[in-house]
Lab assay of single mutants.
Amino acid sequence: EVTIKANLIFANGSTQTAEFKGTFEKATSEAYAYADTLKKDNGEYTVDVADKGYTLNIKFAG
């Protein structure tokens, strides 16, 4: 089991951190699915992958 950390960075400057656990593939998939649910209210997003994929910096356009 691994932990994927998602740093969520919103257009208004606020930030939030979420963690997803499971296999690497499952946790990564859940992180992207979570970002997709936030897209409606926060706009499109870009992802900067860090720490060999264990950290995702997800920035929303607003």
Rank of each mutant, 00 (worst) to 15 (best):
A35H: 01
K5G: 05
F24Q: 08
K21Y: 10
A35R: 00
T46V: 10
E19K: 14
L8H: 02
T3V: 12
T15M: 09
F20L: 02
G62M: 08
T55A: 05
A6Y: 02
A33K: 12
A50F: 10
V2F: 06
K59P: 01
T15F: 14
E44L: 14
D51H: 05
K26D: 11
A31V: 10
T46K: 06
T46F: 13
V2H: 05
K59A: 08
T3Q: 05
A11D: 14
E19V: 12
T46D: 15
T37G: 10
V49S: 15
N42I: 05
F20C: 02
N42L: 06
E30N: 14
V47T: 11
T17S: 05
L8S: 02
F10Q: 04
S14Y: 15
V47L: 07
F10E: 02
E1W: 08
F60M: 01
K5P: 01
T3L: 09
S14Q: 11
D41R: 14
S29C: 04
T23D: 15
K39I: 13
Y34K: 04
A31F: 03
A35Q: 00
E1M: 15
N12Y: 15
E1T: 15
L8R: 00
F24N: 07
T15N: 14
T28M: 12
Y32K: 15
D51N: 09
S14C: 05
V47F: 14
L8K: 00
Y54F: 15
E30V: 08
A61F: 13
K39C: 03
G53H: 04
S29W: 13
K52T: 13
K21N: 11
T3F: 13
K26R: 09
D36V: 14
F20H: 02
G62V: 11
F60W: 11
I9S: 08
A35S: 12
G13F: 14
E44Q: 09
N7G: 03
K59G: 09
K21G: 06
E25T: 10
I4S: 00
Q16R: 06
E30H: 07
G22D: 04
L8F: 06
A35N: 01
T15V: 15
G53N: 05
T37C: 03
G22I: 00
F24V: 14
V47N: 02
T17V: 10
G62T: 15
G53W: 03
I9P: 00
E30W: 09
F10T: 03
A33Y: 13
K26P: 02
G62A: 13
L38E: 03
T17C: 04
I4D: 00
Q16L: 08
K52C: 04
V49I: 06
T55Y: 04
E30R: 13
S14L: 12
K52D: 07
K21T: 12
K21I: 07
L56G: 00
T55M: 14
K59R: 13
A31Q: 01
G22Y: 02
G43A: 03
I58G: 00
A61L: 11
V47E: 01
N7I: 04
F20V: 02
I4L: 06
I58Y: 09
E44F: 10
Y45F: 09
D48F: 12
E1A: 11
N57V: 14
L8N: 02
A61V: 14
A61R: 10
N57G: 08
G13V: 07
G13T: 08
N12D: 07
S14H: 11
F20M: 02
T28S: 12
A61N: 12
A18R: 12
F60S: 00
T17K: 11
G62S: 06
V49Y: 12
F24R: 06
F20T: 01
A31C: 03
G62C: 03
Y34E: 02
D36G: 06
N7P: 01
I9G: 08
V2L: 09
K21M: 14
D36W: 04
A33F: 15
L8V: 13
K5V: 11
K59L: 14
Y34L: 14
D48L: 07
D48V: 14
D41H: 11
N57P: 00
K40R: 06
K21F: 11
F24L: 11
Y32Q: 11
L8E: 00
V2C: 04
T3R: 12
E44I: 11
D41M: 10
E19C: 04
I58H: 01
Y32E: 03
K40H: 10
A50V: 14
N7Q: 08
T15K: 14
K5E: 07
